[in-house]
């Protein structure tokens, strides 16, 4: 457990100033960072406490909602407007972690949580994400929990966030602030594929900060279906977020994203395309679900996810489609 210095930021600009040091890390909820620090994976020299910045506001607008990066998961999940208009977000949040973690963890931190790949988390086994060039023992080793989409010969770790899956289905954007000002990045562009630099997971540069997540309004019917190995307090084996707009019984828009299957939250574009213009019925859902795993590249222990993903998509479509 590496020792570090501590600084409490009172203004975002001050936090960004402090973060000019390359060995600094922001801390807010701390629920993932402190695990990584205890395992020797994160070794910051300076912890910049951003938990008291006024970035925890949840601001509904006509065309969407802006969720402050420092809003706690439980506060967002309990927010009446989120529950009424973006139930997908509330469902995904409540499906993740424990009540204690949801009370501490923040929206921005949730999006930046690192993979649960046990080789990565071990602190000293080979892992290209943690120690570039050391190899990926998961590919030829234990890979039940690993990705069937987006892997590279260097890394097949999945992204663990439930929230990010919901946000991917909702075409959310991440508002990023840095020394050079702020920018909006679509969630589809925010996460990077591992390629040959699996240590880089997002477009966030050193010293940059997530300020907020912007989620556009949706008239869709939503469902978040999470398959897991125990009934609660467990990461997804496979999860699917669905957002369906149905006009007169016809699917006008379909957005589907999956967790537990990709090296980043995975949009299922072929399944979406198969739904557009179709009557929202069981036959169309089956047909779309059959497309969900196209292009999957399973490993020795996770081939079951190919079929499980199809079934989870079908269930999510049934649940979303069945909503009034």
């Amino acid at each position: 457990m590496h020792a570090f210095d501590y600084a409490r930021a009172t203004e975002p600009s001050q936090a960004l100033d402090l973060a000019r040091r390359p060995d600094a890390a922001f801390i807010a909820g701390g629920t993932d960072l402190l695990q990584l620090w205890k395992a020797g994976i994160a070794r910051p020299e300076l912890m910049i406490d951003i938990s008291r910045l006024a970035l925890d506001i949840v601001k509904p607008r006509d065309d969407g909602i802006a969720i402050g990066a420092l809003a706690r998961l439980s506060d967002v999940a309990d927010h009446p407007i989120v529950q009424a208009r973006w139930p997908l977000i509330a469902e995904a949040l409540n499906a993740g972690a424990s009540a204690q973690v949801r009370n501490a963890a923040t929206i921005g931190g949730n999006l930046l949580q690192r993979t649960r790949c046990a080789y990565f988390r071990s602190g000293d086994m080979p892992c290209n994400k943690r120690a570039p060039g050391s190899g990926c023992p998961a590919i030829g080793g234990e890979n039940r929990s690993h990705a069937i989409f987006g892997g590279s010969p260097h890394c097949v770790a999945t992204h663990a966030s439930d929230l990010a899956v919901a946000l991917a289905a909702l075409d959310a954007s991440v508002r990023v602030a840095g020394p050079a000002g702020s920018r909006l990045v679509g969630i589809g562009d925010f996460y990077l594929l591992p390629g040959d630099t699996p240590q880089r997971e997002t477009v966030l540069g050193q010293g940059q900060l997530i300020c907020a997540v912007d989620v556009p309004a949706t008239a869709g019917r939503a469902a978040y279906v999470k398959v897991r190995d125990r009934a609660s307090f467990e990461f997804a084996v496979v999860s699917v977020a669905a957002d369906l707009v149905i006009d007169d019984g016809i699917v006008a828009r379909a957005r589907l994203a999956a967790g537990g299957v990709g090296t980043r939250p995975w949009r299922l574009t072929e399944a979406e395309a198969a739904l557009i213009g179709e009557r929202a019925d069981a036959a169309a859902f089956d047909k779309a679900a059959a497309q969900a795993s196209n292009g999957a590249e399973p490993l020795a222990h996770n081939a079951f996810k190919v079929e499980l993903l199809r079934r989870t998509v079908r269930r999510a479509l049934q649940v979303a489609g069945g909503k009034a």
Binding site: R116, A118, Y119, R121, S122, M125, P126, P137, G140, G141, E142, D229, R230, A231, S232, F233, E234, F235
Partner: peptide, 30 residues
Amino acid sequence: ALHEATVMDPHLGRVVGTSLADYLIPVHAD
């Protein structure tokens, strides 16, 4: 029956997953 398994890497001989978030025991909801 449903949850518990200590997984060993077949090549490294190491336990894969060394936290109670990896080694699942039944929780209240189970």
